[in-house]
Simulated assay, not measured.
Amino acid sequence: MAKSKIPVYDIYGIIPGHTQQDLLLSRFAPYVREHRHLHTQHGHSFYHLVLFTKGAGEHTIDFDRFTVQPYQVYFMAPGQVHSWHFNGDMEGYLVHFSPAFFQSFLADQHYLDRFGFFRGISKEAVLQIPAAMRKDAVALFENMLAELEQPREGGLDMIRMYLLQFFMQVERCCGNAEKQQVPRQKQLLLANFQQLINKHYNTIRLPREYAELLYITPNHLNALCQDLVGRTAGEMIRDRVLLEAKRLLVNEALTITEIAYALNFQDNSYFNRFFRKNTGMTPEAFRKQIHH
């Protein structure tokens, strides 16, 4: 399909002339002033996080809306889409880093998968930093900025350590305590399932087919999903198809028929029934709501 959908930025293209390999770190206020496209839906091919220290407004991640509050932090995994609508001046910190940024530093290539806020589930990725942690959180970001402003040997590794420290502190204070006790093997299996869905949602719709790819039984897969995310495997597949449908509907250049075809539905009416059953509105109504 030739027509474009939501724009997806890479870590170099989002800022003209940016050359820092695999990392972008900035205070939030100047970043917002320079990037007026933030109010429109867009995606990233990199990990992305923001710690707000001042400001108000609203931001939307994968069509879930959140009210901006001071000392709120939100995380995005590659592939998610979002838009921001701010009221007044904004302050805080922003970090972009590529999937490769930690790969040369950590022996465990799946280390970031242990953090619930990087699973790509928007409602688990927006967290409020408690008062007792705020001073330390700000200090970590200031230390990271200092490493960029006064480059020294090992500076990027220091930034990696500060980031990991921040991730672990957030997970300890704000993460789901029950999920933190989930065995590593189960976390990896769920992450692999989510990766397979992202890769094959357009062609594979049955849980048993994903179970075969994971070398487990359908019952095992379903129990895993219910235990870790409170959803069946079928619901997770359906949710991913629905999310892509919403992303495509943002692009007014695409007709509903073209979107149905792109998502591998048998016909336009089948797609309409699917969308309405799961959202309570037609694709046309959703599109009008988004562009209202």
Results as ranks from 00 to 15, higher is better:
residue 4 S to L: 12
residue 8 V to H: 10
residue 12 Y to I: 09
residue 18 H to M: 09
residue 19 T to C: 11
residue 22 D to I: 00
residue 27 R to V: 11
residue 28 F to M: 13
residue 29 A to D: 15
residue 32 V to D: 05
residue 32 V to Q: 07
residue 33 R to H: 13
residue 37 H to L: 11
residue 39 H to K: 12
residue 39 H to W: 09
residue 40 T to G: 06
residue 41 Q to E: 13
residue 43 G to I: 04
residue 48 H to S: 12
residue 51 L to C: 05
residue 52 F to P: 00
residue 53 T to Y: 09
residue 54 K to F: 12
residue 55 G to M: 04
residue 56 A to F: 05
residue 56 A to M: 04
residue 61 I to W: 03
residue 64 D to P: 02
residue 64 D to G: 09
residue 68 V to Y: 02
residue 68 V to T: 08
residue 69 Q to A: 13
residue 69 Q to L: 10
residue 70 P to G: 04
residue 75 F to I: 01
residue 77 A to Y: 00
residue 79 G to P: 07
residue 83 S to F: 09
residue 87 N to M: 10
residue 90 M to N: 05
residue 95 V to W: 00
residue 95 V to L: 12
residue 99 P to K: 00
residue 100 A to Q: 15
residue 104 S to I: 11
residue 107 A to M: 11
residue 109 Q to A: 14
residue 109 Q to I: 09
residue 110 H to Q: 12
residue 117 F to I: 00
residue 122 S to T: 08
residue 128 Q to C: 06
residue 129 I to T: 10
residue 132 A to G: 08
residue 137 A to R: 07
residue 138 V to P: 05
residue 139 A to F: 10
residue 139 A to E: 13
residue 143 N to M: 10
residue 144 M to N: 04
residue 146 A to H: 11
residue 146 A to V: 07
residue 147 E to G: 04
residue 151 P to R: 01
residue 152 R to I: 12
residue 153 E to R: 06
residue 157 D to E: 15
residue 158 M to T: 13
residue 159 I to N: 01
residue 160 R to W: 07
residue 161 M to P: 02
residue 162 Y to L: 08
residue 166 F to M: 09
residue 168 M to Q: 13
residue 168 M to Y: 12
residue 169 Q to S: 13
residue 169 Q to R: 13
residue 171 E to A: 10
residue 173 C to A: 13
residue 176 N to Q: 08
residue 179 K to M: 11
residue 179 K to Y: 15
residue 180 Q to F: 01
residue 186 K to M: 08
residue 187 Q to K: 13
residue 199 K to R: 15
residue 201 Y to V: 10
residue 214 L to M: 09
residue 216 I to Y: 04
residue 217 T to L: 04
residue 221 L to V: 03
residue 227 D to Y: 11
residue 229 V to F: 02
residue 230 G to V: 02
residue 231 R to G: 01
residue 233 A to S: 14
residue 233 A to F: 00
residue 235 E to Y: 10
residue 238 R to D: 08
residue 239 D to R: 14
residue 240 R to M: 10
residue 245 A to M: 07
residue 245 A to L: 06
residue 245 A to I: 06
residue 246 K to E: 10
residue 248 L to W: 07
residue 250 V to A: 06
residue 257 T to V: 11
residue 259 I to W: 03
residue 265 F to R: 03
residue 266 Q to T: 15
residue 266 Q to A: 15
residue 268 N to R: 15
residue 269 S to A: 14
residue 269 S to G: 04
residue 271 F to V: 03
residue 275 F to H: 06
residue 278 N to A: 09
residue 278 N to S: 10
residue 279 T to Y: 03
residue 280 G to A: 08
residue 289 Q to G: 03
residue 292 H to V: 05
